[in-house]
């Protein structure tokens, strides 16, 4: 497994970096970083932690030159510390999220466990293929939906709302036993594995049913716009949600209200 990780880390093509790297990625000993995405918030790199066979994700929030430097520092620090706090809370309460390896909130980065697998979005789309019928009878897919619901329910139960739930922000991570031939990310179309919720940058502590309902509504909207043909099986997700979170009836009732009004209220003049 370790050999596979090394091979994998080394197999990323070398990159020309368009953006300046954070200092932590410029040590001669570190594995050449690979830019995974460039979002509005910051950049996500893949590198290694301590040893060349431990891959990691490095989230870097570069300074925003248009913001007042004091405000910029305050926000960057606050956001990294708050994400770290949420991650620690999730792990303490047994919800599978990436482990936190290191951080430097003043320099604007945090280093997290690299979660092997593929985004749920990718696996669902592979499974759907170009099928138009029989999706609501696909027991494997329905079971996956329930597992997603279980993960979200557990997160809400421990008092965390995600803020940006989509099928891209969950990884389907294959279990160690199922990994063969160094296929750490699993096989296309396979729905085997554990749901790992990632990207908790907008997450917060909340135990109000309104916040939970909005979280579910955002997920529902994201799911039906990303996988329109699978809209009919979204209810399976809510079944898993109820199973994991016993007091969910109030949040689900609230979801009805949120659906009626949309996330936005009607506009005041």
């Amino acid at each position: 497994m370790a050999a596979a990780a090394v091979a994998e880390a080394a197999s990323e093509p070398p990159q020309q970096h368009q953006f300046p790297l954070p200092a932590v990625l410029e040590y001669p000993a570190s594995t050449p970083p690979y830019l995974i995405t460039q979002g509005a918030e910051g950049r996500l790199y893949k590198s290694t932690y301590l040893q060349p066979d431990i891959p990691c994700a490095l989230k870097y929030r570069p300074p925003k030159p248009w913001r007042h430097p004091i405000l910029d520092q305050r926000l960057t620090k606050h956001r990294i510390l708050s994400e770290a706090k949420v991650l620690a809370k999730c792990r303490r309460d047994g919800l599978r999220v990436p482990a936190m390896y290191a951080m430097d909130e003043a320099a604007g980065w945090m280093m997290l466990e690299w979660v092997h697998g593929a985004p749920v979005r990718v696996r669902v789309n592979e499974r759907l293929g170009d099928r138009k019928e029989g999706i609501d009878k696909d027991e494997g897919l329905k079971e996956l939906m329930r597992r997603i619901g279980l993960a979200v329910g557990k997160m809400h139960k421990i008092g965390i709302v995600h803020g940006d739930l989509t099928t891209s922000n969950m990884i389907l991570s294959p279990s160690a036993e199922s990994v063969t031939d160094g296929q750490l990310d699993g096989t296309p179309g396979s729905l085997e594995g554990e749901i790992v919720i990632i990207d908790l940058g907008l997450a917060s502590y909340s135990t109000t049913d309104e916040d939970r309902a909005v979280d579910l509504y955002v997920l529902e909207r994201a799911f039906t716009s990303t996988h329109p043909r699978a809209e009919s099986i979204f209810d399976e997700l809510l079944k898993g949600y109820k199973e994991a979170y016993k007091q969910s009836n109030l949040a689900l009732k609230r979801l009805e209200d949120v659906r009626m009004r949309g996330r936005k209220r009607s506009m005041l003049g």
């Binding site: 509005a40 925003k64 248009w66 913001r67 007042h68 405000l71 926000l75």
Partner: peptide
């Protein structure tokens, strides 16, 4: 500085 930073941030997103 505060409110404009907020507006620029949501626009960037």
């Amino acid at each position: 500085e505060t409110v404009y930073a907020m507006l620029v941030e949501i626009t960037e997103r």
